[in-house]
Design a protein around this nucleic acid. Structure first.
Lengths: 185, 185
DNA sequence: GGATATTATAGGATTAGTCATATATAATAT
DNA sequence: ATATTATATATGACTAATCCTATAATATCC
């Protein structure tokens, strides 16, 4: 389960609470690894049980106490092993495409509408990506070196290029349908 | 759950058994909607309970009897409604990228190896895509019209373009790292 | 003769992920 | 005064998906 290793990866920068982690996920890897709050807390418990992380309660007077987790030596080893292990091939499901696959029974206008709304969504994603570099600046402190920051930026680049390619394709298909390339029913 | 609608979409072409469906999924939409055999059978049961499909036992002397499912009027309506409904936005998880994100602690060679193996995998996917058009020919009978066939081909195109864009990016990153663009540790 | 593959359906167990909700305090906005 | 937001953790219920195994007949390969 990659969420375990993603959390381990962040704890490797510095000790963090579940709450910290949620904010970090939401501002850094959310475009390719969203994490549910409840899943983060449950995974932290599991990491502790497995000896890959240790928990320390930090008392606060004004707010609820924090449970701060830090990575152990065993955790660091596990993280390193995982980094060198190729992930199992996994085919992500694409709900837009499964609709396109069966869209033939719709009218031309209805089909174009499916593509238009998909294109609109990708444009929204692209806009979000444009905002990430600024958000990332705020978290640059977590990065020990420019090397780690470079890797971070690479994942952004990947998302951006993939969304851009997807949008180009969607716009091309819309153009072709409007150009009469979709066969009659 | 889109698998329900994907099955309904195929049943809309002609009545099929769970076994037929498994083969069809594996040769047409497997690159963006893989379906597990046991999931198909369970979903067929659910569709029947819901009145979207009806089952008929076709006895066979030499082989186990087939349970052939056909779509009902209610099923056709549900399929059409779904086609006009935008899917919930869903962010697919990308295990390659989450590794890249934390790859900064590895050596340059180890990082290049991660990208090389990702590129190798995408090249394999691209090769699989090249074989799909022939496989599809065998199932062309399911398509009532060239319109449906066109939609089928569009999904292939999407997968191909996306894989191609991804490979271009991976090869560009490999080139840049070998060019010394990855900062020192 | 024995092993494996094909046709055909099905259920148990488990995991990953989602959604909703609960609890508690303090600060801020309207 | 009231509502909302932020900080902080946690559990219950559920769905989708995966993996493994079982069953049963026939056909084919070595």
């Amino acid at each position: 389960m990659s969420l375990e290793y993603a959390i381990l990866g962040f704890l490797n920068y510095k000790p963090l609470s579940g709450y910290d982690l949620k904010r970090i996920f939401d501002t850094s890897v959310q475009h390719f690894w969203p994490a549910d709050q409840s899943q983060i807390y449950r995974t932290l418990t599991r990491l502790t049980e497995r000896g890959w992380a240790e928990m320390e309660i930090v008392e606060q007077s004004d707010r609820p106490d924090r449970k701060v987790y830090h990575i152990t030596a065993a955790g660091r080893e596990a993280l390193h092993r995982w980094l060198l292990t190729p992930p199992h091939p996994h085919i992500p499901r694409n709900a837009d495409l499964i609709q396109v696959f069966f869209a033939g029974q719709l009218s031309d206008d209805e089909i174009v509408a499916i593509f238009e709304r998909a294109a609109e969504r990708v444009r929204g994603v692209l806009k979000l990506y444009e905002r990430i570099p600024q958000q990332v600046e705020a978290y640059r402190e977590y990065m020990e070196s420019p090397r780690e920051f470079f890797c971070w930026m690479l994942t952004l680049e990947a998302g951006f290029k993939s969304a851009q390619a997807n949008l180009n394709w969607l716009e091309d298909v819309i153009r072709r349908i409007k150009n009469g390339e979709m066969p009659e029913r």
